[in-house]
């Protein structure tokens, strides 16, 4: 059994099942630690994804820069953050996209948590 029950709403536990499913995608994202690899991805996205053997589901999620779809395809947020970095997106951009609000609204929500 590699898959954990998903007991926390809105949360994908990155367990063995997810890690197995997402391996190629996460491995590609890990390569983005290197600036030359980030540039290579930007130059030839198709070729770069093909080299890492992304599944069609992962390739679609990458094409759409869709974080929830990337997670569903086995992506882990720590590696996905490196992918997002290519487009100058930070964790608040990512948070806003996943929760369907603007970045300003997302930031305002966080500030409200402090009150």
């Amino acid at each position: 059994m590699t898959t954990t029950r998903q007991p926390v709403p809105g949360t994908t536990i990155f367990d063995g099942g997810q890690a197995q499913k997402g391996y190629a995608l996460n491995k590609m994202c890990m390569s983005f630690n290197d600036a030359a690899n980030r540039a290579a991805f930007v130059r030839d996205e198709d070729g770069y994804c093909a080299r890492y053997g992304l599944t069609p589901q992962q390739r679609e999620a990458v094409r759409h820069r869709n974080v929830l779809a990337l997670i569903a395809a086995g992506g882990n947020i720590y590696y996905l953050a490196k992918f997002a970095g290519i487009f100058g997106l930070d964790v608040q951009d990512i948070g806003a996209q996943q929760t369907g609000v603007s970045k300003e609204e997302f930031k305002a929500r966080l500030v409200a948590e402090g009150r």
Binding site: V8, P9, G10, T11, T12, V67, L68, I71, I77, L80, A81, V91, I94, G95, Q98, T99, F106, R109, L110, E113, G114
Partner: peptide, 13 residues
């Protein structure tokens, strides 16, 4: 804090 999923932005003071 939580970065991922629909629950992103979760905080529990």
């Amino acid at each position: 804090h939580q970065l991922d999923g629909e629950r992103a932005g979760f905080i529990n003071k």
